[in-house]
Write a protein that binds this DNA or RNA. Structure first.
Lengths: 207, 207
DNA sequence: TTTAACTTGTGAATCAATTCACAAGCCTTT
DNA sequence: AAAGGCTTGTGAATTGATTCACAAGTTAAA
């Protein structure tokens, strides 16, 4: 299969969100133009994005809302449960642990890990906090699919190396660090400082 | 000035991070190739990124670390203080309020706002939580530069419209919603669900 | 001085993403 | 059954980003 651009996947994700709204309101069909308006893009872009995966629409009519939603869930791999562990039981870890969007989309948080003995044994928004020491063992046993990193920047690469060695293939990183991973491991980084500096740049360089 | 791509600005931000490490270690110069390796890109990319803003290096030698760091701070608009308010004093708001990276880079959090009377009057990690009702008045008086949105998705657009009307030109959005704003308003959205679905896609569509 | 080893800055070339534009298909009305 | 109004799917064209490749400048050593 041809390599799909990251930007395309993000848009598919957005389309699915809109489709779910329409599903809830029982609207039967939607056109590429409607999806485009909602997503701030163009109808050609919407059709091109979908065309990488097949042709799901009816000329003259548009797309069946439930059918397209189903297809997108399939494409995005949302038909199954993904098991997630959070490493770092700080404020960000806590915020993520209570985030409903996780569960809603089939992401189950198994546990959080921390090295702080104060936190271990307690729960974080109902999720057990375990000792980081048992991480490797637990990965063997529970086979999580995704690791969310909310550790300090200095530790992020070390933890990443460790979970990659244990077989993890997908990482969502909130640590402010540039991480390096093998090509077969998907890493997404959310870097607040970078976003803020993007805004600072935009405010500074206005024509 | 020619339009600078978002990806370029993000890389500049990354380069600055590396330069600060080198500054701390008092290394006097650095080459585009070293920066590239750290940032997971190529030396040509580094030089091209910088070339949009001038020529800061010395052939045969590389870049003076403190000079280039200074230039990048200038380009990114980090020479001044940016005033930030957080709207939504929930878990994510709390996580952001305590995030040290903010202050470190000259972003001062003035206040958090919430509609929940329970929270108003208290503090969030040392930051006062104010009634959302006084937001417009406070924006007039304190003139914040950046608004961070951590409200529920359904409310995000309404709050955005409101702060835009009050004159805000930069918004960092954590609500899972597609926001629409006038062209002269910079909006950056951090959408956890989208990142997770990106990982789900990557795990699903592995060749 | 001359030479060798580096490294920048930048047009040109390539690669990638987006937009255009239109034939082809579907539905409704007459 | 024909016409009119929509809307898709997709090659082609365009626009944008990245990579190539090399002249030109710098330093250090001989």
């Amino acid at each position: 299969m041809k390599r799909i651009a990251d930007s395309t996947v993000r848009r598919l994700s957005a389309y699915l969100r809109f489709l779910e709204d329409f599903e809830a309101r029982a609207q039967p069909t939607i056109s590429s133009d409607e999806l485009a308006k909602l997503g701030g893009t163009t109808s050609a872009q919407v059709r091109k994005d979908l065309s990488f995966f097949g042709s799901f629409g009816k000329r003259g009519l548009g797309y069946s809302v439930p059918e397209l939603a189903g297809r997108l869930r399939e494409i995005l791999g949302l038909g199954r449960e993904w098991k997630v562990v959070i490493i770092g039981a700080g404020k960000i870890g806590a915020a993520l642990a209570q985030y409903r969007g996780f569960r809603q989309r089939g992401f189950t948080i198994l546990a959080a890990y921390d090295s702080n003995r104060e936190k271990v044994g307690k729960t974080l928004e109902g999720i057990p906090v375990r000792d980081i020491e048992q991480l490797d063992r637990d990965i063997q046993r529970e086979k999580p699919d995704i690791v969310v990193l909310t550790v300090p920047g200095e530790e992020a690469q070390r933890v990443l190396d460790r979970v990659v060695r244990a077989g993890i293939k997908a990482i969502l990183n909130f640590a402010p660090a540039q991480l390096h991973a093998p090509a077969d491991v998907a890493v997404k980084t959310v870097n607040m400082a970078m976003e803020l500096e993007g805004l600072s740049f935009a405010l500074t360089n206005r024509e």
